Computed example of a mutant assay.
Amino acid sequence: MKRLLPLLLLAGCSGPQTPLDAWGPQADRIARLSTLLFTGGGVILTVVVVAITLALWAPASWRKRMGNIRFVIGMGIVFPAVTLTALLAHSLGVSRALVTFGGEEPMRIEIVGRQYWWEMRYLDSGAVTANELRLPRGREVELTLTSADVIHSVWIPNLHGKLDMIPGKANVLRLRADRVGELRGQCTEFCGEQHTLMAFPVVVHEPSEFEEWLARQAAPVPAPTTPEQQAGMRVFGAAGCGACHAVRGTEWQARIAPDLSRVGSRLTLAAGALPNNLGNLAGWIAAPQDIKPGNHMPAFARSLSGEEILALSTWLDSLR
């Protein structure tokens, strides 16, 4: 058990959702500040414990020296005042650096928090996705954060700190990802029953690969190529799915629920609640309240047959 404890502590220093594993300059500043504060706090705690130990068990001559008025003023007033003032000044400098933007023209993305999912709008291209953020490696990105209902808060620990999403107000977060891979974002402001199931993958691509992905997202969806996909598209229209969802290049352009234009290419369903595959997609359509109670998606298990749900899922899964 003693050997496992250091491993458990080190497990929090890396991974797809830890602020100590910095993937960009903003997160690196936060991680360095955290290390400084942890180290400084550890040193001060050690000094205090040593002082208490000496006061209780040291020889009388030592205790007499520690009771000297200069020692008390120096260690009890001057030392903490100087130390805390220096840490405050450094922390304010880091905070200023986090909101001081460089001269590079950023890529602009708007993220809208909703109960209980995320809408991502790539403003420069017109592409709209949901519950997944894709970024190019090495490029400055400006995230405009707002909410359509209640207060949410977005946090991508490996890239930046938390920032609230407030209805009627737009907050701006600048970040840059310097590594290729997959991270995880999370809502960190309690927003209702399914707050804990409101996450999203963050995928960082090489710039050329990202541009290819973005072009696909902005283009109309391909026409169904198999009889089952064609049947699924008809079910989508007949069941009224287009009253809430948009599918680019079709007559369905609603903005009430997540955009499904390229839903088959996404890593998760229902804002991180499920891995995205054909079986989970069919299960979500049939009984979403069993998976994520309190969300606004109606169940179709009674209004659609199993064959219709499978056809609909097959068509949606083909949208990549």
Rank of each mutant, 00 (worst) to 15 (best):
L4Y: 11
L8D: 12
T18Y: 15
D21M: 03
L33P: 13
T35M: 11
T39M: 02
G41P: 15
V43N: 08
I44T: 15
I52F: 10
S61L: 02
F71K: 02
M75K: 13
F79E: 10
P80L: 14
V94Y: 15
G102Q: 11
E105Q: 04
E105M: 06
P106E: 07
V112C: 04
Q115H: 12
Y116R: 10
L123T: 14
V128W: 15
A130W: 13
R137I: 00
G138Y: 12
V141S: 13
L145W: 00
I156D: 09
I156Q: 04
L163C: 10
M165V: 15
I166M: 00
K169P: 01
L173G: 03
E182T: 04
Q186N: 14
Q186V: 07
Q186W: 05
M198L: 00
F200A: 03
W213F: 04
L214R: 01
P227A: 14
Q229T: 12
R234D: 03
G237A: 01
G237T: 06
C244D: 07
H245N: 03
G249D: 03
W252S: 08
A254H: 08
A257Q: 06
P258K: 07
V263H: 11
S265R: 01
A270V: 14
A271C: 09
G272F: 04
N276H: 05
L281G: 00
G283N: 10
W284K: 06
I285Y: 10
I285S: 07
P293T: 15
A301F: 05
S305N: 06
E308S: 09
E308Q: 12
L310G: 12
L310N: 08
L312Q: 14
R320K: 05
